Structures are given as C-alpha cells and as structure tokens.
Computed example of a mutant assay.
Amino acid sequence: MRLPLRRGGRFVAAALLASLALTGCGSAPEPQAAPAPTTSVPVTKPYDKLRPTEVRIPKIDADSSLISVAVTKDGAIAVPSVEEPMQAAWYRLSPVPGEIGPAILLGHVDGNSQPGIFYKLHELAPGDEIMVDRSDGEELTFVVERSIQVPKDEFPTEAVYGNTDKAQLRLITCGGVFDDAEHSYEDNVVVYANLV
C-alpha cells in the first residue's frame, strides 16, 4: 500500500512508508553485514537547489555531511549505503530545514560491522541541540522536543510527515531488536525537533 507524503500543504511523491520504516537503516553488528537495498535512484545524485549540507549533534558526537535521497523504484525512501554507515541523508521530497514543515534526515544505527551516524540517536532528550548547515550559508539550530521508539509496523506516519505550521526536523533511524531473518531492526527511533 502506498501512502502520500506531504510537503508544505501539498502531497509529494508517494513512498511506501512501511518500508521507510527504514528498511536498510542498519545491519547486524556481525562480520557479515546485511546487504544494502538496491535503489533505482542514485542516492548521491547532485541536487543544485537550496539544500542542507551538514548535520551536527554535539550531545552524541555525531557530525556528517548530508547527501540528498529520493525514492526507489519500489516506492521506499532510499537510504545511504550500509557500507558507509556514518553518512547521513536528507529526504529531498521533504522541506529544506528551516522551511515550514517537517524536514526529514535519515541515518544508519550501524552497518558494515560498525556504529552508524545515528547509533546514539535514542539518547537525545528534550532541550538537546541539532545544528544544520545549508547551501546558502545559513546555520540553523533545532532543539529536541521529544524522541520515540516504535515498532516499524506502527510507524506514526502522520506525526512524522504531516503538515506543520512551523519549521521542524525529524531524525529517523532503526532501533530495537535486530531480526536476522528480515535483515532489519524491528523498531524505528524518531526524534522531533523545532527550529530555534
């Protein structure tokens, strides 16, 4: 079932949100990591419009450039390669951070037998800061409002992607127990933050 994603009062490209329930947002911390999902769009395709370029989260010592991602031929949101677990991404069909609405940033919890950029995302608490740089030279600061961990089959689609009347940020990764059969974690961690 395909569900619509929203952006600034408009529906944007449909994506299979159950899959975003980040299929491939990490792999087992074992010698043989689960393979990254194949995608029909280049995950690192250049994006020449206004975009976020870097994310920094001091509390968890996370710092990454941001590549832009869209959707795969199957309708799932593309994610960075599991071979590069320290790379974070911005879902470019969501608002640019600083615009009205929920800007979506994605990152692995682990991959390639090492921690990922959002390995400690679950440690964020209300009041923690997240900094995002943009291609226009703006440096924005967001403050965490709340953090949740939910089973992927209960992913709060509307709360994450629904329209908002202010500039917000959503950081998403995997969490919970790793399911060897599915090569994926059972939960998602979602952090909600507001522009200062």
Results as ranks from 00 to 15, higher is better:
residue 1 M to P: 07
residue 7 R to H: 12
residue 8 G to D: 11
residue 11 F to V: 11
residue 11 F to H: 15
residue 11 F to G: 15
residue 12 V to D: 02
residue 16 L to N: 15
residue 16 L to K: 06
residue 23 T to G: 06
residue 31 P to K: 08
residue 33 A to E: 15
residue 35 P to V: 00
residue 36 A to R: 12
residue 38 T to Q: 07
residue 40 S to Y: 11
residue 41 V to N: 12
residue 43 V to L: 08
residue 44 T to F: 06
residue 44 T to W: 12
residue 45 K to I: 10
residue 50 L to T: 12
residue 50 L to W: 08
residue 52 P to E: 01
residue 55 V to N: 02
residue 56 R to T: 07
residue 56 R to F: 11
residue 61 D to L: 08
residue 61 D to P: 01
residue 63 D to Q: 13
residue 69 V to P: 00
residue 72 T to L: 05
residue 74 D to L: 06
residue 79 V to I: 04
residue 80 P to D: 02
residue 80 P to V: 04
residue 89 A to V: 01
residue 90 W to N: 11
residue 90 W to D: 09
residue 92 R to K: 15
residue 93 L to S: 07
residue 100 I to G: 14
residue 105 L to V: 08
residue 108 H to A: 02
residue 120 K to S: 08
residue 133 D to R: 15
residue 142 F to K: 09
residue 143 V to A: 03
residue 144 V to A: 04
residue 145 E to R: 14
residue 146 R to G: 01
residue 158 E to F: 02
residue 164 T to N: 03
residue 166 K to R: 14
residue 173 T to I: 03
residue 174 C to A: 11
residue 175 G to P: 04
residue 180 D to N: 13
residue 182 E to R: 09
residue 189 V to M: 04
residue 191 V to F: 00
residue 192 Y to A: 01
residue 193 A to N: 03
residue 194 N to T: 05
